[in-house]
Simulated assay, not measured.
Amino acid sequence: MVVIRLSRGGSKGRPFFNIVVTDKRERRDGRFIERLGFYNPGARGAEESIRISQDRLAYWKGVGAQASPTVMRLVKQAAAAAPKAAA
């Protein structure tokens, strides 16, 4: 099965997550099919904290990929923040 989940990067104490499409059997930080965006929980000030390619996300969900609960929460959070950024 193909899943959309977070892959951890960054240094110790400063996490940075890539939102990736991968095979469920792969390790968390292992090989992936495509990178859809990122999530930076430690973003400060004007730094961008989350970016998701909505068109690629829709494509992968359309062909049957399942998103993790955390990724779904982040997608909703990004959608809510998008109108504020555009204004």
Rank of each mutant, 00 (worst) to 15 (best):
A85Q: 15
R35C: 15
A80H: 12
I4D: 01
F38N: 09
R31M: 08
K61A: 09
Q54A: 14
T22W: 00
S7W: 01
K61I: 07
P83H: 03
T70F: 00
K84C: 00
W60G: 01
A81L: 13
P15W: 07
D55M: 12
S7E: 09
G10H: 10
A43Q: 06
V2L: 15
G30W: 04
V21C: 09
R51Q: 11
S68D: 04
L57A: 04
L6I: 09
R73S: 13
M1G: 12
S68M: 04
P83D: 03
R51C: 11
V20N: 10
R25D: 12
A85T: 11
A65P: 02
T70D: 05
L6P: 08
R28T: 06
E34H: 10
D23Y: 14
T22I: 10
T22P: 00
G64N: 11
N40V: 00
V21S: 08
S68R: 03
R28C: 01
R14M: 09
P69N: 04
G30T: 05
G45W: 01
E34S: 05
G10K: 06
S49M: 03
P41Y: 09
V75T: 03
S11E: 13
A78I: 04
V20S: 04
K61G: 03
V21W: 04
R73V: 01
V63K: 01
A78T: 01
K12C: 06
G45M: 05
L36W: 07
S11P: 02
W60M: 01
S53K: 13
K61T: 11
R73W: 06
A58M: 07
L6C: 07
D29S: 11
F32L: 08
Q77H: 10
T22A: 15
S53R: 13
R27I: 05
S53F: 06
K12A: 12
R27L: 10
A86G: 07
E47I: 01
N18E: 06
E26Q: 15
V75W: 09
A80D: 14
M72K: 06
S11H: 09
E47Y: 01
S49I: 00
R8F: 06
M72L: 14
R25Y: 05
Y39V: 08
G45E: 03
R56K: 15
G10E: 06
S68L: 08
G30N: 06
L57F: 15
S11Q: 14
R28H: 11
F16L: 14
D55R: 11
A80P: 00
G42Q: 12
